[in-house]
Design a protein around this nucleic acid. Structure first.
Length: 187
DNA sequence: CTTTGGATTGTCT
DNA sequence: GACAATCCAAAGA
């Protein structure tokens, strides 16, 4: 079993927390992950909550693979599959390589908003439906895990209304590249 | 600065 | 037919 597979074959909140600071690129374009959210089968807000369907099949596939879906009819969202039925939504990253390609695709040049948000991130990295189900360990993807633990803020998820607000959103502390400021944050 | 509403389509009920 | 893990522009304070 590869290192990457072992890393992802764990509960989504753990994986989401430890992904902060990882370097991720698609065809050489990407940067450092600064914001993630965790989704698990027992969570009503998760796509996997009501079992497997044609759309969310990738969430029930092997770990360390991509789960890509379209949201609100016009944006793409990119997830990394953790243990069975669980996934980590990549919400934002700090652009480091391929800035020219990102700016060209996004039609905007401000690095602080280039990849700040799931839809923007996918647009900047050219992630589309065809990437759904692909292994993260192989091209066009490249993922290297953080070498050391980072200072991470924990907050409630965005766009999810839940009866018992769980703190399943993870942000790099002090990063200027988040989709929104980490408000009700603890450690 | 914050808040609000429209865009737009695949998926499930 | 309703709605969704969002983004952006426009309007208000």
């Amino acid at each position: 079993m590869s290192t990457l597979t072992r890393f992802f074959a764990r509960p989504a909140p753990v994986v989401a927390r430890e992904l902060i600071g990882a370097a991720f690129t698609v065809d050489g374009v990407g940067g450092e992950i600064v914001e993630t959210e965790a989704y698990e089968p027992h969570d009503p807000a998760s796509h996997s909550f009501r079992g497997m369907t044609a759309r969310n099949a990738s969430m029930f596939g092997p770990p360390a693979h991509a789960y890509v879906y379209r949201i609100y009819g016009l944006h793409w969202c990119f997830n990394m599959v953790a243990e069975r039925g669980s996934a980590v939504l990549i919400r934002a990253l700090e652009p480091l390589t391929g800035l020219d390609a990102m700016i060209s695709r996004r039609g905007a040049a401000d690095p602080k908003t280039l990849c700040a948000g799931p839809g923007r991130l996918c647009q900047a990295l050219a992630i589309e439906g065809r990437h759904d189900g692909l292994p993260l360990a192989e091209p066009p993807f490249a993922l290297s895990l953080p070498k050391q633990s980072r200072s991470v803020d924990v907050a409630t998820r965005i766009g999810v209304r839940e009866a018992t607000p769980a703190h399943l959103r993870y942000c790099m502390a002090g990063s200027a590249y988040l989709s929104r400021k980490a408000r009700s944050s603890q450690s």
